Amino acid sequence: MNKPWYKQFWPWFLIALPGSVVVASFFTVSLLTENKVSLVSEDYYKDGKGINQDFSRLRKADELSVSAMLSASDDTAMFTLEKGKLPQFPTLNITFQHRTLPDKDIETVVNADANGRYRIALVEPLQGPWYVEVNAFDGSWALNRKINFPSSDPVKLYGKSKE
């Protein structure tokens, strides 16, 4: 009473193992094509040269004795600028870059209020690791820092001297 092979358990079990790997491979390929990884730079040499320019802007902030304090709540990020040798509170370009989710990045131009504070309205609270950069509108100096949010205490942003 031998059954034909296609009615037995073991041949189908042995076929199912590599078959499941093929299905999983197609699923993985579809995930990778839908969710493009944007962390790798196309022109890493040009980016590396740009880092040196960033360092010079950080050193310039130290020469001018400029620093900033950042405090963030659920709906607002507030910068208090210590302007050092600057004659007035400048217009700032402020960038929040999320480490892994580029669609959450925030870039804005902000002017100081009457008290010398810069406020940014947030669409959603800042959560997780962020890279924060404050640039003078004319690009002459910059401050930056990596920050994990939420942070209960204000965080100080520096030029090059923090390292």
Results as ranks from 00 to 15, higher is better:
P4E: 11
F9K: 13
F9H: 09
W10Q: 13
W12P: 01
F13V: 11
P18T: 07
G19I: 09
V23K: 08
F26N: 13
T28S: 07
N35L: 04
V37Q: 03
V40S: 12
S41P: 02
E42H: 09
E42M: 10
D43V: 09
Y44W: 15
Y44S: 12
Y45Q: 02
D47R: 07
G48W: 03
K49N: 03
Q53I: 10
S56C: 04
R57C: 10
R59T: 07
R59Q: 09
D62S: 13
E63I: 08
V66A: 07
S67I: 03
S73G: 08
D74N: 05
D75Y: 02
A77D: 07
A77I: 10
T80G: 06
T80I: 11
T80C: 06
L81P: 00
L81R: 04
E82F: 09
K83M: 04
K85N: 08
K85G: 12
L86R: 01
P87I: 03
Q88C: 00
N93K: 06
N93D: 02
I94K: 03
T95D: 07
F96I: 14
Q97N: 13
Q97G: 00
Q97E: 15
R99Y: 07
L101H: 13
E107V: 14
A112R: 12
N115A: 12
Y118L: 04
Y118M: 01
R119D: 11
R119L: 09
I120W: 03
I120C: 08
L122G: 01
V123E: 06
L126F: 06
G128W: 05
E133C: 08
V134P: 01
A136K: 05
D138T: 05
W141A: 02
W141N: 01
L143S: 04
N148Y: 10
P150F: 01
S151T: 08
S151D: 14
S152T: 15
K156M: 13
Y158K: 08
Y158M: 13
K162W: 12
K162A: 14
E163V: 15
